[in-house]
Amino acid sequence: MTRFAFLYADARRAFERELAKARAEAETRLSISEREGVLREQFIAVLGHDLRNPLTSISVAMRMLSKEPLSEKGQEVLTLTQGSVQRMSLLITNVLDFARHRLGGGIGLKMTEGQVLEAEIRQVVAELHTAHPEREIKLEVTGVDAVTCDVPRVGQLLSNLLGNALTYGDPTLPIAVDVGLSQVGVFTLSVENHGPPIPEQALERLFEPFVRSTDDGNPMGLGLGLYIAAQIAKAHGGTLDVVSDEDGTRFTCQIPQEAGQAAGPTA
């Protein structure tokens, strides 16, 4: 009996040592993970700051230059530069949002009443139309004053959808943007363009990161716009869907107001 008692005690002490070692290793890994998380967040913040500052300077310079008398060629160059600045700003926002989302930060929301929502929507459409003056964009906004949402995020969602429509839609046909609040309390935002339908293989993965609407080798964009748009809709407790056929391609975001008011970041 004594021999068995010693064996049991030795095994227990060995088990306790292994348990203590495993606990210490786990605490070390957690500490390292926390430090890395802080460093990643700092990197994202610095990256956003360092990329946005020169872009802001360029944007201010373009606005100042737009007030000066310019030749027709100069005005054309100014318009192209303003479009590039707007597109680069959206790319930076999408990349930073993607990084935060993949690091567990989710899409953060600051919910506000919708009195300024219509102005945000019109501003987004005006900016993109300035960058593409040859394109026709039909905008209809109705009854959005009662909407509760993160206004800049909804503007970002619209910018991503409209930018996608401008890139892949038929340039000879208008793009329709419809925004409103239904009688059953659902905020709806849709963007419709005409042109070839999205291929079936692309539709299946359209809202995944780094996937584009077509597989024609078009190098424009990172393939993050639709992914970020879907995440913004999800953060509001809503959905983003697409229908694409020979008649056109229509993206529709729907946000029930009860869900939108209670929504928060999503991981």
Rank of each mutant, 00 (worst) to 15 (best):
P174F: 11
P209I: 08
I107C: 11
L166T: 05
G169N: 07
E192K: 02
S159H: 03
R205V: 01
G104Y: 05
D150E: 05
G195I: 01
D170I: 08
T79C: 14
P196M: 03
E192L: 02
L39E: 04
V243L: 01
D97F: 02
Q156D: 04
E41N: 10
Q86W: 05
V125D: 08
E41Q: 12
A230M: 00
A26G: 06
E34M: 03
L162G: 10
Q75C: 08
P256I: 09
D215G: 12
D97W: 04
A11W: 15
V243N: 10
A146T: 04
I121Y: 13
R153A: 15
G37Y: 02
F187K: 06
A20I: 03
D241E: 15
L240G: 01
T214A: 08
G37K: 05
H129R: 15
P219Y: 06
L157V: 10
A22V: 05
L117T: 02
L226K: 10
E258M: 07
R3M: 13
K234V: 11
V124N: 12
T112M: 07
A259H: 15
A259S: 15
P174E: 14
I175S: 09
T142W: 06
S84H: 07
P265E: 07
R250L: 14
G264K: 07
R63I: 06
L224Y: 10
V186N: 12
A22E: 10
G185Y: 12
Y168L: 01
H194D: 00
A262H: 06
K110L: 06
K73V: 03
G221I: 10
V60R: 13
H49Q: 08
V151M: 04
C149H: 03
A229V: 01
T28A: 10
D178A: 14
P54D: 08
V38G: 00
P265T: 11
M64Y: 06
A176Q: 09
D215K: 09
